[in-house]
Design a protein around this nucleic acid. Structure first.
Lengths: 231, 231
DNA sequence: TTCATAGTTCGATGATAGCCGAAGCATCGA
DNA sequence: TCGATGCTTCGGCTATCATCGAACTATGAA
């Protein structure tokens, strides 16, 4: 028996399916209202209120009052990091949630994972980048090559050297749950996603809280030209 | 309701106090028998057996049969990483375990966290570096100063400019659970640890899987000269 | 003021899951 | 072969906690 932070209390908070759904819904970084979170978790507002109070007391989420709404967001990127870590472990153990309701092909195809592109297209992009030797990935490391830097600058006007960040790696392999393979996270992953948005190749779905990313017809073509299966 | 890795199942495993005690006991990297873990968690062997089966099914621990004993260890450094992350969040929220009795003082004093120094000495080092203005840390950022670069080059023959890595920041503040304060991670943290090893100031404990770091008498003196409380 | 919406508090209920005693395997030593 | 030890399975007890209906507070709109 050792002294230390009481992990189990925090973990128990995440351990309830309803609360976990709420947290997962917040992983895209946006703040959601209590009602939205209740719906997301499939529970009544009363129950949600109780859960939200517990999550707040546990330091996992922070409220922000705005009019008669109460917006909640994850306290901290560290919280999102732990949740991602749990996702990785769960995926490896083969514990996937059973899909209920209509399966959402749009969500499988392209969605936001925190701030970068995930889903079929996200995985496809990283695959293509490796095939084109823009990114080199070994078992332990993943990094942008010289070719990759040039490519980012010429094709997408992204200055890779400007992406270094003290608390975040430029490239990070993020396990994609729908594909069970990696897609690209890190500051480069985020930069790519925001460039796609700026170029109006893609936009986040208008539905509040949705993580779906819709590509325009033109955007899909330009994306395929750079990162298509034959590129 | 979305599909995805079932975080809540994994989190619920950690969320039970008894199981959490077991996992914490395994965090030093050593493998323990079922009985030892039962005692560690303060429960009977029957109950422990049930918990261990669940943890194994959840992919958090792995058994190794040896005679009539069954040794368990954490599946993976990733698991330890998630546990450390949870510890950080719990510590920040002020949720500390009440049970005291520092069973492994060596682990508290100096241990490996991934590839860098953690524990009392790790925290002390970062503190000292900030006091000497080798590192500047704001709420959001942490970076090496000019003085810091010179110090690294002159005192430890570490070329800070060579430490830039596409996937990893040079400096990163990592929350230390035993001290509830930050220690230094990132490529610089790793470089320092490997330099200490090269200089034979410190070595990882010989026990397989152990995370304890043992400083030599001379190493401790040299370390204190650079990063001591009065330096 | 009056109504509507967002959110919370309270109390009762019911299911889940941790817990242990007892008994059952499996392995080791003699 | 026998007994001792380590561990697991089974069954029943109990406590916890998620859940919802109903009632309450607070903000905003008409």
């Amino acid at each position: 028996m050792k002294a230390g932070p009481d992990i189990s209390r925090v973990a128990a908070l995440v351990g309830d399916p309803a609360r976990c759904n709420m947290l997962t819904a917040l992983m895209n970084g946006r703040a959601l209202t209590a009602s939205e979170l209740a719906q997301e978790a499939g529970i009544t507002p009363q129950t949600a209120s109780s859960h939200l109070a517990k999550l707040e007391a546990g330091g996992l989420i922070e409220p922000e009052k705005q009019g008669r709404h109460r917006y909640y967001r994850l306290t901290d990127p560290d919280v999102a990091g732990v949740l991602e870590g749990l996702q990785g472990i769960a995926a490896r153990a083969g514990h996937m949630r059973v899909r209920t309701g209509p399966k959402d092909p749009a969500l499988r195809r392209a969605r936001i994972c925190y701030d970068h592109l995930a889903g079929d297209l996200g995985v496809q992009m990283l695959d293509s980048m490796k095939r084109q030797r823009l990114i080199r990935q070994t078992k332990q490391t993943i990094e942008l090559t010289g070719d990759g830097k040039r490519f980012m600058a010429e094709e997408l006007q992204i200055d890779a050297d400007a992406l270094t960040h003290p608390r975040r790696p430029v490239c990070k392999a993020c396990l994609d749950w729908s594909e069970r393979r990696h897609h690209l996270a890190g500051t480069l992953g985020a930069a790519l996603m925001s460039r796609f948005t700026e170029l109006k190749w893609a936009a986040r779905d208008a539905t509040p809280g949705s993580r779906v990313v819709n590509f325009t017809r033109n955007g899909e073509k330009r994306f395929a030209a750079l990162f298509g299966a034959d590129a």
